[in-house]
């Protein structure tokens, strides 16, 4: 069965995120055809340094998401600290100060569930390294909506708990190394 081309990529990562994303994001070409929406667990009181850090080493545009920001191709959006990041139906991003989910705000589950609602099967969700359970329910929501799942091989992850929890819930997900994920993304967009 041929799959519908995705309209967006969502990525979730926690402990070890910096190193993992440093393999994936800088490898994407300047003309990467999709928006990439990313939640990384960060302490609430930190001014986010993620977007500044990756802007310097990526060819795609890198932004910290603002409320109601329109989504554009070849752009990576990071959730700001202390807000949930959601995808809205009119191709924009939204923020929310609702309660933390599994002690996290931003929460990977919240982003992934909202993206699954909007994109249905036209979504690729990627869950990377992390030491908690966030993202597993979000991956399941993406799977139920017919989207495509990629989980970092827990054996290669800095922290295996998060990819393992997602695999337990979504055993049919594709399992890849970071290099494999990079290569796969360059192929689909």
């Amino acid at each position: 069965m041929s799959r519908l081309a995705p309209q967006a990529i969502v990525i979730g990562a926690s402990a070890g995120a910096l190193e993992a994303l440093s393999v994936i994001l800088p490898s994407l070409p300047k003309d990467f055809a999709l928006p990439i929406i990313i939640v990384v667990h960060i302490p609430p009181d930190k001014r986010s340094v993620l977007s500044d850090l990756f802007r310097a080493k990526c060819q795609v545009q890198v932004l910290e998401a603002e409320d109601k920001e329109p989504l554009e191709a070849s752009t990576a959006y990071f959730a700001p600290p202390d807000y949930h990041l959601l995808v809205e139906g009119n191709n924009t991003l939204g923020l929310s100060s609702e309660d933390p989910v599994l002690f996290s705000r931003p929460s990977i589950d919240v982003l992934f569930e909202s993206a699954a609602d909007v994109y249905g099967p036209r979504l690729t969700a990627i869950l990377l390294t992390g030491a908690n359970q966030d993202g597993a329910k979000g991956m399941l929501a993406v799977a139920k909506a017919g989207g495509e799942l990629i989980i970092q091989d827990p054996g290669t992850a800095f922290a295996a708990a998060m990819p393992e929890a997602a695999l337990a819930l979504c055993p049919d997900a594709m399992v890849m190394s970071l290099g494999g994920i990079s290569e796969y993304l360059r192929r689909i967009a």
Binding site: L86, V87, E88, S96, D117
Partner: peptide, 9 residues
């Protein structure tokens, strides 16, 4: 209201 967060709540 923004639909994604209304839906969630």
């Amino acid at each position: 209201y923004a639909m994604a967060s209304v839906r969630r709540r």
